[in-house]
């Protein structure tokens, strides 16, 4: 064991030294003449508004120029959710091997366990506003304001998690783990479907400008971006809930 630890320590030290040296060989981040600052960035900075209709050029890169990567990342989130569910459910079954405990259906909420009125009241106020904020982040954000699909999804998920935590599995405002997985897939599918539409309309995948609507190019791109953001929101929200659900079940069994 000692060898392994010593070896690991050695590797860490070597890596640190190497990376420090390497960092020195890179051009400085603030250098306006560095390749990263001069090669592709110019077009993104100067042309993104007119080409993509987005006031925020980070969004423009993420959702338009390199929108395919973001589809990939959304898929990664969905996949991570699936994998986490598989891992947690396997571990859960492993824990309950031999014991005759049914896989948890009776999840007790905090208010049942701790029985305070404070939690109920607070939840009833907090949950709606959080949900509303989540929707706002999606719709109002991304363009000029902070926000966008990923953030929105996380906030919406929080609303549901609070509900689950407080009221338990029987909560009214809830999405079951199985349904969450289905929704996560649908969310990502919505994102991909925008791309499928562009294919059907004769363009390349995610070529927003090909949409046969009577709008300017920038508006079409905006529409496209909005569409994919909805998909992202749904996916992120549902994935977080699915993972939470799997974790919650594991807790309840053990």
């Amino acid at each position: 064991m000692k060898f392994v630890r010593a070896g690991a320590l050695l590797v860490v030290v070597v890596m640190t030294v190497v990376l420090f040296i390497g960092a020195g060989a890179l051009p400085a981040i603030y250098n306006p003449q560095s390749p990263a600052s001069t090669h592709v960035s110019d077009r993104y900075i100067e042309k993104s508004v007119e080409e993509t209709g987005s006031l925020n050029f980070v969004t423009a890169v993420l959702a338009d120029y390199r929108g395919y990567d973001t589809l990939g990342e959304t898929t990664v989130i969905f996949t991570a959710g699936l994998a986490a569910v598989v891992l947690l459910r396997s571990a859960q079954k492993a824990d309950s091997r031999g014991k005759k405990v049914p896989l948890a259906k009776a999840g007790k909420g905090m208010s049942e366990r701790f029985g305070t009125i404070v939690l109920n009241t607070a939840a009833r106020f907090v949950i709606p506003f959080v949900t509303l904020y989540g929707v706002y982040v999606l719709v109002g954000g991304g363009e000029g304001n902070p926000g966008g699909g990923f953030q929105s999804g996380a906030v919406l998920a929080i609303a549901i998690i609070i509900s689950r935590l407080v009221y338990g599995e029987g909560a009214a405002f809830n999405i079951s783990g199985d349904l969450a997985l289905i929704l996560a897939g649908i969310g990502t599918f919505i994102y991909a479907f925008v791309g499928v539409l562009t294919l059907l309309w004769g363009g390349n995948f995610l070529e927003y400008g090909i949409a046969p609507f009577l709008m300017s190019a920038a508006e079409k791109h905006s529409l496209g971006i909005s569409g994919i953001e909805i998909g992202v929101t749904l996916c992120v929200m549902a994935t977080i809930i699915a993972i939470f659900d799997a974790l919650a079940r594991k807790e309840e069994v053990s």
Partner: peptide, 24 residues
């Protein structure tokens, strides 16, 4: 090359999930 990384992630995560479904 970055798109490669994204799909590397997708394939890795799905592989982890598939392998994990085989029991304890």
């Amino acid at each position: 090359v970055f798109n490669l990384y994204v799909f590397l992630e997708i394939s890795s995560l799905s592989a982890y999930g598939l392998i994990a479904s085989g029991g304890y």
